[in-house]
Nucleic acid binder design. Structure first.
Length: 474
DNA sequence: ATGTGC
């Protein structure tokens, strides 16, 4: 138990929260709402926790809509921390008869993608500078060629990756299309839900809906905050049989993409925050938490189509970010294979037991599904297998969790020496000096205990670990 | 999270 835990629990009680702790799982309730379903959070001992995140979790569980529907259960992952829309990052909420746009937020289908490549790490590092120069062109200087046909864009937004692929095979455009579309086709089964959600192109901005050749500035761009593209080495394989089936072997080069739906998700998320407010029944008091659910079935349907549209865009964004990297490896190292291991969203609403499950910064951990948990740029990332743990709502953490805010890292008086930031030996490629500091390893909790607690709780099992070689941050 | 926003 952490030393200041009792103090934290007393402080939360003064703020109207009942919190119990069984040494591993906290259960949170609003005192004035004893009928709310429990909100649970799994936390390893000795990690700092923030009171505000507990408050947000309890408020989410207590959420009601005057027209009916219900929150069935709330669970948070060990990396949970306060979110600025009122819902904590790391929240998983099961609802029936209502959907909560804020429980996904604006970063719709933020997620992880992992590839491996059979290139010796020494050969790769020997050409580090040439690789970095090419990738900087793609990611930072706009030299990437990701022209798309308007029919392919429409198919993407409506049907997801399979629709995009079919149209792109018909009318190949851009560097990615001139590469191996057949390989992308074979890999599509390694994308969560096939990367195919039912969207509505009307949600796209006009620039994306032009006729002819579409060059969207957001596609194949990393985005800010904790998003990144990282080249790694497979450091340890723990579950040899499963890793073999997934194509992962010790010593391989790997690369990991963490990105989402960029401006489209922001647009959809903000629009629906407003629409949920506008749809709130006249005369009913607005929830103090600012979390507004939708209950009207027609609105729920429309929201989910909008969310799915942004999600489809995010699937392609990650695919293109990875494809540019794969193409660059082929330029430098010949016809190398760099197969996809898995692509998985951690910010999305999906059907669940007759209702809905919204994950905000939580990785699906369904039985036999790959789970990708990134560490910081100075720590290992984990490839795990989900165990479908029902109490955890089949969800794992989406990282180690922030220990310190961006502000406190960059301007809050943090010790900014390389060693204190944990940046010694870290190869971070970015055009923004403050990004290295905001996202330095010292800004994150240690990933080891966060992962171990989830193994112990029967949520995931470890398959392999990857160590960073270089990290691209926008 | 966001071609960041008050």
């Amino acid at each position: 138990m952490q030393p200041n835990l009792n103090r934290l629990l007393r402080a939360l009680a003064r703020e109207g929260l009942d919190v119990t702790y069984d040494g591993r799982v906290y259960t949170v309730r609003l005192q004035r709402d004893a009928h709310a379903p429990p909100a649970e959070v799994l936390l390893p001992p000795d990690l700092p926790v923030e009171g505000k995140a507990f408050q947000q979790l309890a408020a989410l569980a207590a959420l009601k809509h005057p027209d009916g529907g219900a929150v069935k259960r709330v669970r948070a992952t060990p990396d949970f921390h306060p979110g600025d829309s009122g819902v904590a990052i790391g929240s998983v909420v099961h609802t029936e008869g209502l959907v909560v746009p804020g429980a996904v937020g604006t970063d719709i289908n933020c997620g992880m993608r992992l590839h491996v490549a059979d290139i010796p790490v020494e050969s790769f590092l020997a050409r580090r500078d040439a690789f970095v120069e090419r990738m900087k062109g793609h990611y930072f200087f706009g030299t990437r060629d990701v022209a798309l046909g308007s029919r392919a864009v429409e198919a993407l937004l409506r049907d997801g990756l399979p629709g995009w692929l079919v149209e792109t095979l018909e009318q190949p455009l851009g560097a990615v299309a001139r590469a191996d579309l057949g390989q992308l086709d074979r890999e599509s089964t390694r994308v969560y839900l096939g990367g195919a959600l039912e969207g509505d192109p009307a949600w796209a901005p006009t620039g994306l809906r032009r006729e002819g050749v579409v060059r969207d500035p957001g596609l194949a761009s990393i985005g800010g905050g904790n998003h990144f593209v990282e080249v790694q080495r497979v450091e340890a394989v723990v579950d040899r049989a499963r890793a073999w089936r997934w194509g992962v072997r010790e010593g391989q080069l790997a690369f990991m993409v963490h990105s989402g739906s960029r401006d489209l998700g922001k647009h959809v998320g903000h629009t629906w925050q407003e629409r949920a407010r506008a749809a709130w029944p006249v005369g009913a008091p607005l929830p103090e938490s600012g979390i507004l659910p939708l209950a009207d079935p027609a609105l729920v349907r429309e929201y989910l189509r909008a969310e799915a549209t942004a999600a489809n865009y995010a699937f392609l964004n990650r695919l293109l970010l990875a494809e540019l990297l794969r193409l660059t490896l082929r330029e430098l190292f010949g016809d190398v294979e760099a197969p996809l291991v898995y692509d998985v969203p951690h910010n999305i609403t999906l059907p669940w037991e007759g209702g809905w499950l919204a994950r905000k910064g939580a990785c699906p951990a369904e039985e036999e599904q790959p789970v990708i948990i990134p560490g910081s740029m100075g720590a290992e990332s984990y490839l795990m297998v989900g165990l479908g743990n029902a109490r955890a709502l089949a969800s794992a953490s989406h990282g180690a969790g922030r220990a310190r805010s961006r502000f406190s890292m960059a301007r809050g008086g943090a010790d900014q020496r390389e060693g204190a930031l944990g940046l010694t030996g870290v190869d971070c490629i970015t055009l923004r000096a403050e990004r290295r500091i905001e996202e330095a390893p010292a800004a994150y909790k240690p990933i080891g205990p966060v992962v171990a607690s989830q193994v112990e709780a029967g949520i995931v099992r470890e398959v392999a670990r990857m160590r960073p070689l270089m990290t691209f941050k926008a």
